[in-house]
């Protein structure tokens, strides 16, 4: 049902782009709901895709290319740079990013320059260079200072395992492929968008969209929710808990 619904959606969306072609794209996500529990150490989410041609074979003369993008929830973030002031390294310059992707994983079947024309890649935001960032204090995207902080943002996110780009889409049949995205232990919670683009001979011929919801499970969800909504009571409980543990320790290990 679900797959059929997405296929229908994909066909409708893809229709104007693929007037001359018969292909449509259907995707399915292995784990649409990811739960972060206390022992969560990261998880792989596999996206399967089927290129529909009506007869199960690639259309004559086609050379398919796939780009699968998993975009994390947008978040406001600030990148700070330390500078040496009077011998001490302090946070000096900073840049605030508005609704920047908290997670970005791109997987393609071939190198990006073989996939599509640069203008197309830029329009679709495929590749680190093509992510459209919005800056809180800067309008000009070509500003060298913005470029510096943008590069730092991407590098820090890569270091945290939250930004990646690779060419590992795996064709398991002529028209069937899969790609796996690793959501690490520190993956942000929220709604992730899955975007899969089908190219043939450098032209976009179909695309499909799905989503992954990452949420904290059980206690891991309850504690922060409670800490935010009932901050005073949470604080009182923490203080009381601390005193009881201390008191208990003092009673158990009584020395005098």
């Amino acid at each position: 049902m679900r797959i059929a619904a997405f296929a229908a959606a994909a066909v409708i969306v893809a229709a104007p782009l693929a007037t001359a072609r018969a292909e449509n794209l259907t995707i399915a996500v292995s784990t649409p709901e990811v739960q972060i529990s206390s022992e969560f150490t990261g998880t792989g989410v596999t996206i399967f895709g089927v290129i529909g041609t009506g007869h199960g074979l690639p259309a004559p003369g086609s050379a398919y290319g796939i780009a699968a993008l998993v975009l994390g929830p947008p978040q406001d973030a600030v990148v700070r740079r330390k500078d040496n002031v009077l011998g001490v390294w302090i946070n000096d310059a900073s840049e605030t990013f508005v609704r920047a992707p908290a997670f970005y994983a791109l997987d393609s079947s071939v190198q990006r320059d073989a996939l599509a024309k640069p203008a197309t890649l830029e329009r679709l935001g495929l590749g680190f260079d093509n992510i459209a960032f919005t800056y809180a204090n800067r309008a000009a995207v070509n500003d060298p200072a913005a470029a510096e902080f943008r590069a730092a943002y991407i590098r820090l996110k890569q270091k945290a395992g939250l930004f990646s780009q690779q060419t590992a889409v795996d064709f398991i049949g002529d028209n069937i492929f899969r790609t796996t995205t690793w959501l690490p232990a520190n993956t942000p919670v929220g709604r992730y968008t899955v975007l899969v683009y089908l190219f043939s001979n450098q032209a976009l011929i179909a695309h499909a969209e799905d989503s992954i919801t990452v949420s904290k499970a059980g206690v891991e969800q309850a504690i922060p929710t409670f800490a935010h909504s009932q901050a005073l009571i949470y604080g009182l409980i923490c203080a009381a808990l601390a005193m009881s543990i201390g008191w208990l320790g003092g009673v158990i290990f009584r020395r005098d």
Binding site: L232, G235, I237, L241, A242, I245, L248
Partner: peptide, 24 residues
């Protein structure tokens, strides 16, 4: 503790319990 819990919501009760039991 209460003021931090209200002001910055950054008191981690799980981390706290681990530290408290180990510390005591």
């Amino acid at each position: 503790t209460v003021l931090h819990a209200v002001g910055s919501q950054s008191v981690d009760v799980i981390l706290g319990i681990l530290l408290m039991v180990g510390g005591v």
